[in-house]
Amino acid sequence: MKIGTVEISSKLALAPMAGVTDAAFRQICAENGAGYTCTELISSKALCYGDKKTQALLAPFPGERPFAVQIFGSDPSCMAEAAQIAVELSGADIVDINMGCPVGKVVKNGDGSALMKDPEKAARIAEAVVRSSPVPVTAKIRRGWDMGNLNAVEVARLLEQAGVSAIAVHGRTRVQMYGGQADWNSIREVKEAVSVPVIANGDIFKPEDAVRILERTGADMAMIGRGCFGNPWLFTQAKALLEGLPLPPLPPLDERCDTVVRQIELSAAARGERTAVLEARRHYCWYLKGIPHAGYYKEQIVRMNTLEDVYTVTKGIKRDLK
């Protein structure tokens, strides 16, 4: 498929997730089969104000291609300026507009999925970003705001008219947040209503789910979010099934530990040891999900402060939890 002029050779995308999809985690997922990656959501206002910490979130990992940056906001002119800044600083191939984030602090400012309540405004924002961006523009939306306002098709049509080159759809309403079940039929309805590529998102927790969501929706790509927390091999497994190959097993625990340590080291090289280790605490716990008797080491993980702590905990896990 193509997003505008950008060739995408994969059917598997890594969803942008705040506090999760930093460059280090994106690199690990890409190495395991994620063919399309995107930054976490980035504030358009912070970019327009020149905030250095926000600018740091734009950095790609070496060789990250195709590479998308995701911006959020509800002021058309600020979003247009932020798109230009984001591409200039990152060299991104694509700019994505977040119209799906359900988190309260985002929604209360009229950003994220709050835009599902105002389709005309969503379209104005998209049009402004498309007009100013030097690269193709995409948008990520939800099924609607609530069950009384299931307007994904209406919003998608307006976004296509505004010039976006692809649309990702999460099959939940904003009110659902991440609870309940994603409605894949709503994604299929969007796919049938627009001619640009559609990316299906929601409830891909097993490799078989990636196959099923593409079959059910007819979408061009499957976007994996929470299912890959601590499990970047979900991409490896899903890729194999999509190619008609046997399902590869998960790596042994030692190899999984080596992977999370490498992720933390990559993050430390980019962002500093203290920040990387603090943010990696929950990542490491995710990698141990389903491992028997891991409780003791999870308690150690949430107290890690240095890379030396990471190495010590990892040595114990490899010794005791095989």
Rank of each mutant, 00 (worst) to 15 (best):
161 Q>F: 02
176 Q>A: 15
249 P>Y: 08
237 Q>K: 15
221 M>S: 13
226 R>N: 04
194 V>Q: 12
233 W>Y: 15
189 E>Q: 06
184 W>P: 10
164 V>T: 08
170 H>I: 05
183 D>S: 14
224 I>T: 03
183 D>N: 15
224 I>M: 01
166 A>P: 00
242 L>E: 12
226 R>M: 12
165 S>V: 00
179 G>K: 15
195 S>F: 06
233 W>G: 01
236 T>W: 08
154 E>I: 05
167 I>K: 06
233 W>E: 03
229 F>Q: 15
246 P>Y: 13
186 S>V: 03
194 V>P: 11
175 V>K: 15
237 Q>R: 14
203 D>V: 06
245 L>G: 11
155 V>S: 02
181 Q>N: 10
245 L>I: 06
237 Q>H: 13
157 R>H: 09
238 A>D: 08
179 G>H: 14
215 E>N: 06
201 N>K: 05
179 G>N: 15
177 M>H: 04
163 G>M: 07
223 M>R: 03
214 L>S: 06
225 G>Q: 09
230 G>F: 12
173 T>P: 12
197 P>L: 06
232 P>Q: 08
202 G>D: 05
177 M>A: 01
156 A>Y: 10
206 K>S: 14
172 R>L: 13
236 T>I: 05
171 G>T: 12
224 I>E: 01
188 R>C: 02
227 G>I: 07
159 L>M: 05
221 M>K: 12
166 A>Q: 00
187 I>V: 14
216 R>H: 06
220 D>M: 12
